[in-house]
Amino acid sequence: MPFVRLILLCSLTLAACGQTPDLGPSPVALGPVPVILPLDQLVAQADAGVITPQIGASVAARAAALRARAAAMRGAVKDPATRADLAAVIARGTA
């Protein structure tokens, strides 16, 4: 059991020495998080005839916000320089 603790301690020490990745802007910076309503609630409102122009506009605004948020999350995860570095390491076969 002491050996396992030593390995765990060494692993945690090495992990603490690593750099934190740049993940880009925080999702909070993209604006407020849209509220996702259950589909059955929206269908029930539509069936009851309580969809007013204001509710329709609200649903359209939420859909636009969700589309904008999805568009902001699309794209490359790694920047071109990092991708080139990774490709070079893979081509060399060394890490």
Rank of each mutant, 00 (worst) to 15 (best):
L42A: 14
D40M: 06
L66D: 05
G93C: 08
L37I: 07
M73T: 03
L8M: 14
R62F: 00
T94F: 04
L66P: 01
M1V: 13
A60M: 02
A76M: 01
P27G: 08
A71V: 09
A57I: 04
R5Y: 03
L30K: 10
Q54I: 12
I90G: 01
V50W: 00
T82L: 04
D40A: 12
Q41E: 12
P25D: 13
A60C: 05
V50K: 04
A61I: 11
A44I: 14
G75W: 07
V4T: 11
R83Y: 06
P38Q: 05
P27F: 05
P21D: 10
I55F: 03
T94V: 12
A81Y: 00
S58D: 10
Q19M: 02
P21Y: 03
Q45H: 11
R92H: 02
G56W: 04
M1S: 14
L86G: 02
V28N: 09
D47S: 05
I90D: 00
A87Q: 03
I55Y: 03
C10A: 11
L9G: 08
R67C: 05
R92P: 05
A46R: 15
R62D: 09
A81W: 04
T82A: 09
T52Y: 02
D47M: 08
A84G: 00
A63K: 10
G75K: 09
G18H: 03
P2R: 15
R5N: 14
G93W: 02
T94G: 13
V59E: 01
A91R: 12
A81M: 09
D85I: 13
A61L: 13
A64N: 13
T13L: 14
I36C: 02
Q41S: 06
I55C: 01
I55G: 01
V35H: 10
V28C: 01
L12K: 09
V4A: 15
C17M: 01
L86A: 06
R92L: 08
Q41K: 04
I7C: 07
I51Q: 02
S11C: 13
R92T: 07
G18W: 10
C10Q: 00
A65G: 00
A70R: 01
V77Q: 07
R5P: 07
R69D: 08
T20M: 08
A72Q: 08
G31E: 00
A87I: 01
D79I: 06
A29F: 02
